[in-house]
């Protein structure tokens, strides 16, 4: 193995590429949990949108814009369906979410056969991927441009969106109302907020994020559709959301961590380590991350209790 600069910058660029779909999905999860709806269907939304991106791409002869649009719309449609079941029909979010995740696998395979007469992998030279961009400053140093190799504009967009979601949730009136629903749904209702409407809209809009994640999978570093293309990234995003405590910035950092794990995993594949072991790395990392996150939560909680105790003692001392 050769730890040259080229090697490291390749890992960095691959980290960014691996990170962005997870980041987008975990932002979707974060927005939903802020609005007090439990969304575990990112996996399904992503898969459906990845598929429809390719379908539209193929039948429009490579229109990237229309493909992205198709991805976003299909993902929003799935999210809206999920929202309808959870919010309107009060069905169990876990069950419906899992149903959507597994159905989308069956549905995409079914449709893949209907459209393309194949079941495993669909790839054609006529398919056009997302435009790859290198930021202007990278051209000043050739080393930097390697770090940004193969990144599409949606990859950059994912980071812009992380900031945008932060501003939306914490600085705008609408975001503040949505967060309020998450804190105390009943209080929000008592003050005249149409809680269900807000939740429905939040969930549907979160579909946009999953849709973008989906096109990154099928039109990002490679342009193709393959059965179960998401391979658990939606679930990893759920963990990233927990790890980042549903705060956009925290979620972004957690996604970066999983991006690193995936990228390291795929790079180790070139070494003597067996594919089965490197393939398991992201999932093992997710389990370990959950453990670490829980220990940290406990520490924070204890510190808070400790501070509260101290405050009370001080107050009592002042009083006497």
């Amino acid at each position: 193995m050769n730890f040259s600069w080229t090697y490291i910058s390749a890992i960095i660029s691959s980290t960014f590429r691996m990170c962005s779909p997870i980041l987008l999905c975990s932002l979707a999860a974060a927005v939903c949990s802020k609005a007090n709806v439990f969304n575990i269907a990112m996996e399904g939304c992503m898969m459906i949108s990845a598929f429809f991106a390719i379908v539209v791409n193929y039948f429009t002869g490579g229109s990237v814009i229309l493909s992205v649009l198709a991805a976003i719309l299909s993902s929003m449609a799935v999210s809206a369906l999920l929202a309808y079941f959870i919010i309107k029909l009060k069905a169990s979010p876990v069950v419906v979410g899992m149903a959507i995740n597994t159905t989308s696998s069956g549905l995409t395979t079914y449709l893949m056969y209907v459209f393309f007469k194949t079941k495993g992998l669909f790839q054609r030279p006529s398919l056009v991927g997302l435009t790859k961009v290198t930021p202007f400053f990278a051209s000043w140093f050739p080393e930097l441009s390697q770090m940004f190799y193969g990144l599409t504009y949606v990859d950059y967009l994912s980071w812009v969106l992380a900031i945008a979601v932060y501003i939306f949730m914490y600085k705008t009136v609408l975001g503040y109302r949505i967060r309020a629903i998450g804190i105390n749904q009943e209080a929000a209702r008592s003050l005249g907020t149409p809680v269900e409407k807000y939740q429905f809209i939040t969930m549907t809009l979160s579909g946009i994020l999953c849709g973008l994640a989906g096109c990154l999978l099928s039109m990002g570093s490679v342009t193709l559709f393959i059965q179960n293309i998401t391979s658990g990234k939606g679930y990893i995003a759920m963990t990233a959301n927990n790890l980042g405590r549903s705060h956009p910035i925290g979620v972004a950092l957690a996604s970066l961590f999983f991006g690193i794990c995936q990228s390291v995993g795929s790079f180790l594949q070139q070494t003597s380590l067996k594919g089965q072991i490197t393939g398991a790395i992201p999932y093992v990392a997710t389990i370990l991350a959950s453990i670490v996150s829980s220990i940290r939560t406990k520490q924070i909680k204890e510190r808070k209790i400790h501070e509260a105790m101290k405050k009370t003692v001080e107050r009592q001392e002042n009083a006497s």
Binding site: L89, S92, V95, G106
Partner: peptide, 25 residues
């Protein structure tokens, strides 16, 4: 007809399986 039709039917059944909670709710 692709055999995945079964997976789709199964998914729809699962989604409806919790629809009973509607009535309970």
């Amino acid at each position: 007809i692709p055999s995945e039709i079964t997976a789709i039917i199964q998914g729809v059944i699962t989604m409806l399986a919790t629809a009973r909670f509607v009535i309970n709710w």
